[in-house]
């Protein structure tokens, strides 16, 4: 090989490399941002490994989409700014809502959940109505009296939620004037304060609340009251993607639909959350 041909080869390679991104991004490798602190969706083990429903499902989805996925752990409050800054290409487990739709795009939902309250055993609230029953906030005739009763029960209490979640929005919208809302960086921080009695009640995803009791140290916390669904709650959980990466979104839309159809999502969600979370089409 002469010097001239190698220069030509380098030039050709440079030209090609420059030309490809202009046409479409190469999605053979996809970097996915994940909180790693929201069990059972995603969690970090003591030796730093990411596990959970999201992780199992991603392994399946990435195989279906025929892409190599790299999971990158990122703190929740900065996960969307990091997506936009290009630190990763997609983010895992975001509840779909209108405010977020303005900023980023979503895949079709890969799970359909609910939200629920948590109480501490020796806390200041003994019980709530409609334990464990589903309540759709769109069904106003049914929801209004229950929410009115909840409002009375929560008057003057302190409610703990994770900052800037749809759970915070619901509490502020429904009980805002009557309760003190305290916001936390993670669900675990809030649970510590619930156990310590600094707050009276927690509000979080039903999946999180349902599996909480089984974890060591959480024997005194239990799920209570109705399993809520409907606006402003973002119970439909999807993957977030930058607005200009439509091709990547379509790739995962197809993978999610296939995984929902053949029962993979049912198997994985039941394994991790004890609830079938397969999204309704």
């Amino acid at each position: 090989m002469t010097l001239r041909t190698s220069i030509a080869a380098v030039l050709a390679a440079t030209l090609l490399a420059g030309a490809v991104p202009a046409l479409a991004k190469d999605w053979s490798k996809v970097r996915i941002g994940i909180e790693g602190a929201f069990p059972p969706w995603n969690a970090t083990t003591a030796d730093g490994k990411l596990v959970g429903l999201d992780v199992d499902l991603l392994a399946d989805l990435c195989k279906r989409a025929n892409v190599q996925c790299e999971l990158i752990a990122n703190e929740w409050t900065s996960i969307v700014p990091s997506l936009q800054a290009g630190k990763f290409d997609m983010v895992m487990s975001i509840g779909i809502n209108e405010a977020r739709k303005k900023i980023i795009d979503f895949t079709v939902p890969y799970a359909s959940g609910a939200a629920a309250f948590t109480l501490s055993k020796d806390g200041s609230i003994a019980s709530l109505p409609m334990d464990g029953q589903r309540l759709d906030l769109n069904d106003k005739d049914k929801a209004a009296p229950v929410m009115a009763e909840m409002r009375k029960l929560l008057k003057g209490k302190t409610v703990g939620v994770v900052q800037s979640t749809s759970h915070e929005q619901l509490i502020r919208a429904n009980f805002g004037d009557d309760v003190t809302v305290r916001t936390y960086k993670t669900s675990q921080d809030r649970d510590l304060d619930l156990k310590a009695g600094r707050i009276d009640i927690g509000f979080d995803s039903a999946v999180y609340a349902a599996t909480l009791h089984d974890k060591p140290g959480n024997e005194d916390i239990r799920i209570a009251g109705p399993l809520l669904k409907g606006p402003p709650l973002a119970t439909e959980v999807a993957m977030g993607v930058r607005k200009d990466d439509g091709d990547l979104r379509v790739l995962f839309d197809k993978a999610i639909q296939a995984a929902a159809a053949d029962g993979t999502i049912k198997t994985i969600s039941t394994k991790w959350s004890k609830i079938d979370l397969t999204p309704t089409p």
Binding site: T77, S78, V80, P81, I103, Q163, S164
Partner: peptide, 11 residues
């Protein structure tokens, strides 16, 4: 500031 960033995503 952290709250506002979480709401607006404009860090």
């Amino acid at each position: 500031a952290a709250k506002l960033i979480a709401e607006t995503y404009r860090a």
